[in-house]
Design a protein around this nucleic acid. Structure first.
Length: 877
DNA sequence: GCGGATCAC
DNA sequence: TATGGTGATCCGC
């Protein structure tokens, strides 16, 4: 029959024959230079083990197509006549099942993960962004799709397609939360809705349309508006007489659109007649190729025209499926609760044949699987081991036991047996799956779907309770996050900037030193010989910084505290800030100091009482950041002389200014005392004076200030910190620096940052080696990020004053959980991921020496960081 | 019951 | 440098 037309005949364009799932069209990919994308994908993949495996699979597919074509060619006229009768009969039977009585609506959230991430960090808005990692992307936003970037594409290829692509690590907790919010809306329209994934659902809206006397299109509009209102996210909807078509329809006007297919046969037949088969759920890359290359079927109606061949060459169930697609049929019933049929887990690692390693992986997987099964009270008897070899070949080995089990010992015992039989082998993935569950151990409650459903319903009417639970749970994570540290050992005894007078400074210096060494991380100082020795093993979370690419000025902002709130303020400009300004004089005692924050409340446990920004209760981290924003905003209100909005505040400011101007004469001069390179901090070696006064702006300020904002001077920062009863110190030793924050009340060290100024080809680089914040020393009312705000400000200002253009740090990857949090944290600050140091490659060795670990190298432009920073410390709107 | 494949998100 | 994890289903043994 049809000759294969995708065999890549043009040898000058080899990429044309390399098809991957992500070279296929998807919503938002219109107008993409497909040829270019394909070429880049090809070039990036060429020669890899993955590529070779893809070629093998491609060859297998060709073989399959050739076989089918042969069988097709062998059909006699009699055969064809026979199968045509079979097909016609079957078509009639299927047609008789057509049910046009139901109205099905399919909802599909638009670029769900990416949209959620943008919601929690509006700085991402309008920029090409992908959720995922260098190895795999889960979702790309529409800006990124314009470059050909899409889900299921490895990150490093995506970066090639779009060098400015921003990567955001996945955060399923967040997506689940938003998914639950959407489901609460769905529930109102169809309590029996079918959730097919976190971001998709099918609703039977027949009843609600009838009850309310409105059209399906109106329901769809209303539902989409509700979802948008309650989540801030957009979705697309499709309405059709069955689920299969509803899903196709929801894709038509994506994003943020809908399409209604009328419930009459003619409309359905017409719709289907020109519908490309690949749009239909269940028809993937292989089926598409087979149908196209063997039978020249590209649209659904052609399934009917070629029905005799389909019946002749496919199984009855496949043929039935194809014919129903051709007729535009699909499921219209609401199925009973779907029981889970298997549970599994699998992990990818860098390929190895180290048997101890492989066995260890198996142990971990067995434990995880057992725990997951216990959680759902599942007992299974078929265990399947999945392996992926270094060459990407996938194998499964299964075993059916006599007894049902969920014990990790049982699982491990049998899994090891299966694995042992395969050794030696070089693997890059191991997985375990359990199936064949015992029928209902404990009756209905053990039904996982049921459980989920009842939980969901419960959560619908006991919002507060659930949120409370989430809170206590989240708090733990946040606590952990607050210890952002590295255990870099650097000796800073020698040079000291101090904003206080000399005697005071000495005192502080000693004290500070004691405080530092009292950290149980034990930094007892050692003389360092160079940057490499600063690397040591990180414990909890680390951040370190280096700069290599001076011209990489992609980052937008940097304050060490989080940028969410700032960006939120931008987005809601005119609403949020105005509200704050209107409210503040009412609720704030004019005489109170900025320490006494007006308590920020969450209206309905959802909306910020100060600005109306919506943040779900489980977003503890983001909420903390948000309150930091108001905290910083208040600071700026109080400290700014440009603030005409609050007479009372202004008056207070004038008083402060008066004191501050006195300080300028005495304490503002920052002494830089140089000490000999010994452990005797009290012995001055040389003397240097830097004037960090707020009245004498640094050179950069006027010349570089092209955005119309005033750069905060070092003085601004230091003075603000004093108002917060913080003492900030900047110490330097040669290129190295350290910033410490101490409580003026308790004299405890609250946080510190360390790093160095590196001279690189294109200019100086601010290398942030570590940032450590200590929550335990803080009262809960004082935000950890508030401290980080100041420390970060000093670091950035210092780097800026030293002429640094770029800042770089490494978000240490000690554990996936913390690493992703860390990357998100720094991304919000304004850093961008530039490189993944995984340690699996020889080239990473040098990086690991410098940074002392694996993780994500991130960069930011210092000036942009400072400009962003300003909006917190200056009085700009 | 097993193993390979396909598909979807 | 580098191509995921989970679950379902189908087909051919």
């Amino acid at each position: 029959m049809a000759k294969s037309d995708t065999s890549g005949g043009d040898s000058s364009r080899p990429w044309q024959s390399y098809h991957t799932v992500f070279t296929n069209a998807k919503a938002g990919m219109e107008g993409v230079d497909k040829e270019k994308v394909q070429r880049i994908v090809y070039e990036m993949s060429k020669g890899s083990k993955f590529f070779e495996n893809e070629e093998r699979k491609e060859a297998d597919m060709r073989q399959k197509i050739d076989n089918m074509r042969d069988r097709c060619a062998k059909l006699t006229a009699a055969n064809i006549a026979h199968y045509q009768k079979v097909a016609d009969k079957r078509i009639l039977e299927l047609e008789s099942t057509r049910d046009l009585s139901r109205l099905w609506l399919h909802v599909d959230m638009d670029a769900f993960y990416a949209a959620v991430e943008t919601l929690s960090n509006p700085l991402l808005r309008g920029k090409p962004m992908a959720v995922g990692s260098m190895s795999m992307i889960s979702t790309a936003n529409y800006e990124a799709r314009r470059y050909g970037v899409r889900a299921a594409m490895p990150g490093f290829i995506a970066r090639k397609l779009c060098p400015e692509l921003i990567f955001v690590p996945t955060d399923f907790k967040k997506y689940t939360h938003y998914s639950d919010l959407t489901r609460k809306v769905f529930y109102r329209y169809d309590p029996n809705f079918i959730a097919s994934s976190l971001d998709e659902a099918y609703l039977d809206i027949t009843k609600i349309c009838k009850e309310r006397g409105i059209t399906s299109g109106e329901v769809a509009e209303e539902l989409r508006a509700s979802v948008n209102q309650e989540t801030g996210l957009t979705c697309s909807a499709g309405v059709a007489p069955n689920r299969l078509l509803a899903k196709v329809c929801s894709d038509i006007n994506k994003p943020n659109g809908q399409f209604v297919l009328p419930n009459n046969r003619l409309a359905v037949i017409t719709f289907v007649s020109s519908l490309p088969i690949r749009k239909v759920g269940g028809i993937g890359k292989v089926t598409e190729h087979v149908l196209k290359d063997v039978f020249r079927i590209t649209t659904c109606d052609e399934m009917l025209q070629k029905s005799c061949y389909l019946c002749a060459l496919f199984s009855q169930s496949s043929a039935d499926f194809f014919l129903s697609v051709g007729l535009g049929l699909g499921r219209t019933d609401t199925p009973q609760v779907q029981l889970r049929k298997s549970i599994s887990n699998e992990r990818t690692f860098s390929a190895t044949e180290n048997e101890a390693f492989l066995y260890q992986k198996l142990v971990e997987l067995a434990d995880m699987l057992s725990a997951d099964m216990e959680k759902e009270s599942l007992y299974g008897r078929t265990l399947t081991l999945k392996l992926k070899t270094a060459s990407f070949e996938v194998r499964t080995r299964a075993l059916t036991l006599h007894n049902y089990t969920c014990s990790s010992e049982d699982i491990l015992k049998h899994a090891s047996k299966l694995l042992k039989a395969e050794l030696p082998v070089s693997l890059r993935l191991i997985g375990l799956r359990m199936s064949q569950f015992s029928e209902d151990k404990d009756g209905a409650p053990s039904d996982p779907t049921q459980k989920t459903l009842s939980n969901f319903v419960l959560s619908g009417d006991s919002c507060g309770k659930n949120m409370g639970d989430g809170l206590s749970c989240d708090l733990h994570v946040t606590e952990n996050l607050s210890t952002i540290n590295t255990e870099t050992t650097m000796n800073f005894h020698e040079t000291c900037y101090d904003i206080r007078d000399p005697s005071d400074g000495n005192q502080i210096s000693d004290h500070s030193h004691n405080t530092y060494t009292s950290n149980n991380d034990s930094h007892e100082m050692e003389i360092i010989s160079g940057p490499l020795s600063s690397a040591s093993k990180r414990k909890v979370i680390g951040a370190s910084t280096v700069m290599h690419t001076p011209n990489s000025c992609q980052a937008e902002a940097s304050r060490l505290p989080v940028d969410d709130s700032l960006s939120l303020s931008r987005q809601y400009q005119g609403s949020s800030l105005d509200k704050v300004k209107k409210r503040a004089p009412l609720s704030d005692d004019p005489a109170s100091s900025s320490n006494q924050k007006e308590p920020l409340a969450w209206v309905d446990d959802y909306k910020c009482s100060l600005c109306g920004v919506e943040l779900p209760p489980s977003f503890l981290e983001e909420r903390q950041e948000h309150s930091d924003f108001h905290f910083a905003e208040r600071l700026q209100e109080e400290e700014s002389c440009n603030n005409h909005t609050y007479p009372a505040l202004k008056q207070r400011f004038i008083q402060k200014e008066h004191i501050a101007s006195k300080n300028r004469g005495t304490q503002i001069r920052i002494r830089i005392r140089s000490f000999p390179c010994t452990n005797s901090p009290g012995t001055p070696k040389g003397r240097l004076t830097t004037n960090y006064s707020s009245s004498s702006s640094s050179q950069h300020e006027n010349s570089d200030n092209n955005i119309g904002v005033t750069m905060p001077t070092m003085y601004d920062i230091l003075d603000s910190s004093k108002a917060q009863k913080l003492e900030l110190r900047l110490q330097t030793l040669g290129p190295f620096f350290r910033i410490t924050a101490k409580s003026l009340e308790t004299q405890n060290e609250l946080g510190r940052a360390e790093g160095l100024i590196r001279v690189w080809l294109g200019g100086k680089i601010l290398h942030l080696d570590s940032i450590r914040l200590r929550r335990e020393t803080l009262g809960m009312e004082k935000s950890i990020f508030g401290i980080g705000l100041f420390i970060g400000a000093v670091a950035i200002r210092y780097g800026y004053d030293c002429g640094c253009r770029t800042a770089e740090l490494l978000a240490i990857n000690d554990s996936d959980l913390y690493h992703s949090k860390l990357v998100r944290f720094y991304t919000r600050i304004g850093f961008k991921s530039v490189y993944e140091v995984t340690g699996s490659n020889f080239g990473d060795f040098a990086h690991m020496l410098v940074w002392g670990g694996v993780g994500t190298r991130m960069e930011a432009n210092v000036q942009e960081l400072l400009v962003k920073w300003c909006t917190r410390f200056s009085s700009q709107k």
